[in-house]
C-alpha cells in the first residue's frame, strides 16, 4: 500500500517536473525569438513606441527599443541555467505583466493603434495579442509556483 502511494506521488512529481520543463522551454523560445527579432531590426519597435497613445518621447523610445529586447534575451538566457531559472521565471512574469498593461491600454483606447506590422506575433490583432499575453502570464505564474522553494522540484 505504502509502496503504491509512494509510486503515485513519484509519478505526480515527475509530471510536475515535465510541466515545469515545458514552461521553461516555452519562455526560452518566446523571449529568445522576440528579443532576437527586435534586436535585428530595431526601427519597427522604435516607430511603434513613438506612435503609441502613451506618447513616448524620442530618448525614452530609443532606450526602450534597445533595452527591452536585451532584457528579453537576458531572461531567455537565465532560464537556460538551473541556478538562475527562478529569477528568469520571475523576470518573465514581470515582463509579460508589463506587456499586458501595454496591450491592454491599446485595446481599451483604440483611438490611435500603432501599426503592428512585421514578425510572426504581429500577425495577431491587438486583442489577440492581449489574450496571448494573459495566457503567457498564467504559464509564468504556474512556473513560479512549481519552482518555488516549498515545492522542492529540481531546478
Amino acid at each position: 500500500m505504502l509502496k503504491g502511494k509512494t509510486q503515485w506521488l513519484g509519478l505526480a512529481h515527475t509530471k510536475r517536473k515535465n510541466v515545469l520543463h515545458g514552461i521553461i522551454c516555452y519562455f526560452i523560445l518566446l523571449f529568445a525569438y522576440t528579443g532576437g527579432s527586435k534586436l535585428i531590426d530595431v526601427d519597427p519597435l522604435y516607430t511603434s513606441l513613438r506612435n503609441t497613445p502613451l506618447y513616448f518621447g524620442k530618448p525614452l523610445a530609443l532606450i526602450l527599443s534597445w533595452g527591452l529586447p536585451a532584457l528579453e534575451i537576458a531572461t531567455a538566457l537565465s532560464l537556460c541555467f538551473s541556478k538562475f531559472r527562478y529569477t528568469g521565471l520571475i523576470s518573465a512574469g514581470i515582463l509579460i505583466f508589463v506587456f499586458i498593461m501595454y496591450t491592454g491600454w491599446i485595446v481599451i483606447f483604440p483611438m490611435q493603434q500603432p501599426c503592428s506590422c512585421g514578425g510572426i506575433l504581429a500577425e495577431m490583432s491587438w486583442k489577440q495579442h492581449f489574450l496571448f499575453n494573459l495566457f503567457s502570464e498564467a504559464l509564468a505564474l504556474s512556473g513560479i509556483y512549481l519552482l518555488s522553494p516549498s515545492k522542492k522540484l529540481s531546478r
Binding site: H21, I28, A32, I40, D41, C80, F81, S82, G118
Partner: peptide, 22 residues
Amino acid sequence: RMFLPILTFMFAISLAIAGNAN
C-alpha cells in the same frame, strides 16, 4: 538538463534571424 534549454535558445535565435533578416 542544460542541453535542451540551450538548444531551444539557439533554435529561437536562428528562427529570429531567418524570419527577420532584411
